[in-house]
């Protein structure tokens, strides 16, 4: 089957997709976008989180055919020519990255949280990130990173909205 969709702002078309493939597989193996990670493929870890029409989803649970003519943003689409997104920079600065396998999913999820909520409380951060497993950090530095990113986004002239898709 042919899949035509928009990924990170660009029109993408791939052929010979098997109908049972997930969006995650198509991104990773057919579009050269392996940033979204294949940790559980059952919606239990959040490592494959992407935006689908502006909503955070596990790409492992989206059938390839379901994304025709939809708009997808992956972790690869969060940074731009000016550099890393503040969420990405905060993950580095806070030591929230160890092995890094959960990181892309967490970065996208945190990005989504801060797009909706300018200054989330700790319980709000925890509930928003509860679908993203991390095995290395115990999550403390991930919380630090989201708090720092929120502060930095609030300090940017355009405010958080200006820095978020």
């Amino acid at each position: 089957m042919r899949i035509t969709t928009t990924v990170n702002g660009a029109r993408r078309e791939v052929d010979d997709v098997w109908e049972g493939e997930s969006l995650l597989y198509v991104l990773r193996e057919r579009m050269g976008l392996p940033g979204s990670k294949n940790a559980c493929e059952q919606g239990e870890c959040g490592s494959c989180t992407v935006y689908l029409d502006g909503i955070l989803v596990c790409s492992c649970l989206v059938a390839a055919g379901q994304v025709c003519d939809r708009d997808i943003v992956t972790v690869e689409g969060l940074s731009d020519q000016q550099g890393l997104h503040p969420v990405q920079q905060a993950f580095i600065d806070c030591g929230a990255v160890q092995c890094g396998f959960c990181t892309p999913g967490l970065v996208v999820t945190a990005h989504g949280l801060l797009a909706r909520t300018e200054h989330p409380t700790d319980p709000e951060i925890r509930e928003a990130l509860a679908g993203n497993l991390c095995r290395c950090t115990g999550y403390e530095k991930i919380l630090d990173a989201v708090r720092l990113a929120a502060d930095r986004l609030a300090d940017t002239p355009a405010g958080s909205a200006g820095r978020l898709r």
Binding site: R28, P34, G35, K37, G100
Partner: peptide
């Protein structure tokens, strides 16, 4: 100091075995 692989990892550019 910060990890030398951090920038790649937060961008999804770091090549894990499965990538």
């Amino acid at each position: 100091p910060l990890r030398p692989d951090g920038t790649l990892k937060v961008q999804g550019e770091f090549a894990f075995g499965s990538d």
